[in-house]
Design a protein around this nucleic acid. Structure first.
Lengths: 338, 338
DNA sequence: CTCCCTTATGATAACGTTATCATTCACAAA
DNA sequence: TTTGTGAATGATAACGTTATCATAAGGGAG
């Protein structure tokens, strides 16, 4: 491509249409303050020149961007993707553009990313989770921008929160199994502090088991996040070897739960006949597979839609108080558990 | 948050550090032309003020952004997510920022998106697929920016191409089944022109069947894209009712293939005993499920990595000629097919 | 016919940074 | 001593747009 050639500017359009640049600016943003035939002439000139507005200059002069910065742990996770997708849909009518970053489940990467994203002067910042490095918190506080923490209930919220308690959700799953008479329950998930949501789920498991006076030591580490189907299968195989009397397995996500289910199928272990399996996240695979997998639905799209609505409210000057939107994920009982 | 307060600028940092703004600018980008103690003083002042560089102003003045615009059909597709993830990794060392947009498998939405993204003056534009609206093509040509089409082999490339022939890949799958002695083969996929890659796969199926002198009319429409596991299951149920003598099913993606497999399992149909199933994309679910699903691996991460490398080369002034990187997806034979 | 108000347009300056050229100073070579 | 060289820093202007204020033309009320 010819990099050398200079792109046409508003001044070029103005000259061609026989008006001032200011009138071009007004015409392009449908100000209503331009006569119809002038506007038509300008649009025609712009089209013929192949003119494209320079958002950079526009943002600099008007001192406002149309960016919303968003960080998620991984792009390749249907839950977070659903949240971002719904957020994107909700922001589209306003012409807002998402600036997406992946932290790779790493708080320091999040810090680096936030520092980079803040340079664009986003209108709002949406982060996944409520645990951040001190410098990351400082950066966000200094930015004087609305911040929304999601997928979690932080102890010390930075600002707005739209999330749920991961620990509580898993406790409800434990309660359900215990009510069914199961006592030898294992938890499959990560044990590093990288995936804080995963750790919260694990904590919820331990707390609930202890509350019921049950042994909470069947904790199977599955390595660093993301914990995929493959890790779920490997870990389940290990569990079947070391603790074959296990009655139920709660997995940190539906993906690892599906892997666990596959491992059982390969060994001819009946699910839920011999062992019950549950996941987290209501991924599609868990609804379609045979048997379908009991899970907890955190409504990722709902989170995204709510974030979008909150951002719109804030931009309208509404919502002066920090919002705390505490969601309650639903338990979905399916075929994989008795 | 306090929106009113003005954020500190380079001038504020300069005043505090007792230097000129120009020196601050140099110090912040590690120009090497600033003495060590001056730089230290400046960084300290910047930190104390909570200063964050304004990329908008920087881009405007230097007339170059650090954006790479990327459009993909859907955020919630592990294949495209893998490509974007690898692309992101490859661009990170250069400090480039991906500007991501979702076309929702709609060429007109792609056009709208490209028009919006070009306003940021991206350094390069990466699109999925090789079919675009005329205006979209015009926009990209006028932008004087390197364009890379991926996941496809366009007939009339805009510029660079890093992709493969979807039709050819499916033909190799048909050839494999025919070599195994199967003749009554069905294709499950969309029939709208929205998902052009899906249509190409369908065309490849028809062409290969005809080449073998076989009946190519077992084409099962699965509605508009994205075609998910659920649609795969529904369509398979329909196929088992209407054409129970089908020996093999090739699905437009592993997701629909997994849905088809589940439908068979619910009906007690043996896979591959009674019917063989194949997918496309090498999604994780197909590798883990029981039986694992025969598929074609388009190496999404490889595509992303290659795109990143090409962009870096172009930015280095290398690669004056349009690059045509023709990849050859591999056939992965698994348990779901004889 | 004047006055005021509305509508359409223009002139000017400014957003925060950096490209570019200019200057200063120290120090080595002649 | 003069001259040359390089390193460190500063002064100025410019990137393309739009906020703001100013102006001109038209039209109805008095």
């Amino acid at each position: 491509m010819d990099h050398a050639r200079k792109l046409p500017t508003m001044t070029d359009v103005a000259r061609k249409a026989g008006v001032s640049p200011m009138t071009v600016s007004r015409a392009l943003k449908s100000d209503g303050l331009v006569s119809e035939d002038t506007r038509a002439r300008i649009l025609k000139a712009a089209d013929e020149l192949g003119y494209v507005l320079d958002s950079t200059a526009s943002s600099l002069r008007s001192q406002k961007s149309d960016f919303v910065a968003v960080t998620i742990p991984s792009i390749n996770n249907a839950n977070f993707a659903d949240t971002v997708g719904a957020l994107n849909e909700g922001l589209k009518p306003r012409g807002l553009q998402i600036l997406l970053g992946y932290t790779n489940y790493d708080m320091h990467e999040e810090e680096r990313l936030i520092a980079q994203l803040l340079r664009r002067k986003p209108l709002a910042v949406v982060v996944t989770g409520g645990t951040h490095t001190p410098r990351c918190r400082r950066l966000l506080e200094n930015a004087h921008v609305p911040v929304i923490e999601t997928w979690d209930l932080p102890e010390n919220p930075l600002h707005h929160v739209i999330g749920f308690s991961n620990a509580q959700a898993v406790q409800s799953m434990v309660d359900h199994f215990v009510a069914k008479g199961l006592t030898r329950i294992a938890f499959v998930g990560g044990d590093t502090d990288r995936d804080t949501r995963g750790l919260d789920r694990r904590r919820g498991f331990v707390a609930a088991m202890q509350r019921h006076g049950l042994d909470a030591t069947r904790l199977i580490a599955a390595g660093p996040p993301p914990i995929s189907m493959r890790e779920g299968a490997e870990v389940m195989a290990r569990l079947l070897d070391t603790a074959p009397d296990t009655q139920a397995v709660i997995c940190v996500s539906d993906l690892s739960a599906f892997g666990a289910l596959s491992a059982c199928q390969r060994r001819g272990i009946a699910v839920p006949g011999q062992i019950s399996i549950a996941g987290f996240g209501n991924f599609e695979v868990g609804a379609i597979c045979v048997p379908s997998i009991t899970t907890i639905d955190p409504s990722p799209k709902d989170i995204g839609a709510r974030v979008a609505r909150l951002i719109c409210r804030v931009l309208d000057g509404d919502a002066p108080e920090p919002v705390l939107d505490h969601l309650a994920p639903r338990l979905l009982l399916r075929e994989s558990s008795i």
